[in-house]
Design a protein around this nucleic acid. Structure first.
Lengths: 245, 245
DNA sequence: GTTTTTAGTGTAAAAATAACACATAAAATT
DNA sequence: AATTTTATGTGTTATTTTTACACTAAAAAC
């Protein structure tokens, strides 16, 4: 149900529901929970605010929705402005609306999460000087309801990781099984059995094993894999796709 | 990240992200996907609009967020105004923001779903004359993006039904196993095996079998059950709660 | 050549899920 | 009084999925 404008209001309910005043308009913000992975740990990107209110405190990056864009576009724009990155997986999580969440002024904020492979993307954005990656468990206190946003985003990420090949967004194109397992262990925040993990992943049949090895971490070297997007798409179309670890 | 108001803007990024104009303010609506169950079928409550735009067409019920309330409160108020009901389970689903979703004017809408036991609640709300329950598969065409909202709400309901005792919100206090199975079959949109269903539900150990029987449907009568909320709360605190059908 | 480190591999037990059919109660009908 | 009708209620077995678990191999470092 949207708007009634200057139309005559016929009933009491119209008066209550469909009548609005100019002063009921609000500012809509987007805040981005940016997850990154650096081959070992799941991290989150935060910035130190150099503007009021709460100047000097850490917060999520965010910005305001403009009249000529939708929320997905706003989130993409905000991320791009800060990091210079585009073509990043983003997903809307939840809309926060407590009346006094921003003590300065009534603002409603829509939270988005983004997934970035830390090593492959060098930021060329502005403002990178005041931004920093934090391990999930050592993030500083944040302003407003941003910590609540992060908690919900983590829960969403955990669920998505089991039903979509979303994890691969966080990895470089070529990765080892160990890196993939590290990633899932970081996301789910629990240890996994190596053999069971590999068996499960292989049974999904969406990875291609390369002849190439990664020699950076072990003396023996570990085979590299790539995600086979086509195979995955086909699978989704046929059976769906979902697994459990 | 919220607002910058009249504060001096120090960097280019501040200018891009933290500067806003009065004209970037928008109207925020809530739209309610109201699910009901009448002992056999899952239904949805729609109203025929008697106001512009799209007067005469069917739509979800909705209204505008007011300055002094949060979104949960707005959704509760809208539902109460239309149906007279209070104390209803509601949950935020997703925020819709396509620029031209409402052709008349820029409006962003936050969708909520609500669960109601159709038989136990007699509506004393205003406007009930233009509202009607529809079976899920025979709902009429709806305005704007309301059909998309419903699709997403159904998906959410299906997920919730497996991790929360949310189904019981849709049933009268006392219900038969058959009614419970009908409900889950409606929500999941698939047939379930009677014996496996009963075994599974019993293994969850959150229902109390009464000595009383429901005689309305069978000559033999079927035992009535009630949901044991305390037992459930305890279980959640200990093990969590989640099942599969 | 000895040590160190990570990669890589298979099986068996346990648990969860899926498949499946008939007897019973009680009212309604004849 | 006997028969028909209708929905209830109940257990076991096979299949699938998940979990637990330990050793060898490769290569570099010393």
């Amino acid at each position: 149900m949207e708007k009634a404008k200057n139309v005559e209001l016929t009933t009491e309910i119209d008066r209550q529901l469909n009548f609005y005043q100019k002063e009921d308009q609000v500012l809509l913000a987007v805040d981005c929970i940016i997850f990154g992975f650096d081959k070992t740990n799941l991290k989150i990107l935060l910035i130190k605010r150099n503007f009021e209110p709460e100047k000097g405190k850490w917060s999520l990056i965010g910005g305001f929705l403009k009249k000529n864009e939708n929320l997905d576009q706003a989130a993409t724009r905000v991320l791009n402005t800060l990091t210079g990155l585009s073509d990043i997986y983003m997903e809307q999580v939840y809309t926060y609306s407590k009346v006094d969440r921003d003590p300065g002024q009534r603002t409603i904020s829509v939270a988005y999460f983004a997934l970035i492979d830390v090593d492959s993307h060098q930021f060329d954005g502005i403002q990178i000087d005041s931004a920093r990656w934090f391990d999930l468990d050592e993030a500083p206190n944040l302003i407003f309801d941003h910590e609540e946003m992060i908690r919900k985003a983590i829960a969403r990420l955990q669920r998505r990781a089991m039903t979509m090949p979303i994890g691969f967004e966080l990895l470089p194109e070529k990765f080892t099984m160990r890196q993939l397992q590290n990633l899932y262990e970081s996301i789910l925040d629990k240890k996994l059995d190596k053999r069971n993990f590999i068996n499960k992943i292989n049974s999904l049949d969406v990875l291609v094993k390369l002849d190439e090895k990664d020699m950076t971490v072990s003396r023996k070297g570990a085979y590299l894999y790539v995600f086979d997007k086509e195979k995955y798409e086909k699978k989704v179309a046929e059976d769906g796709f979902s697994f459990k670890l």
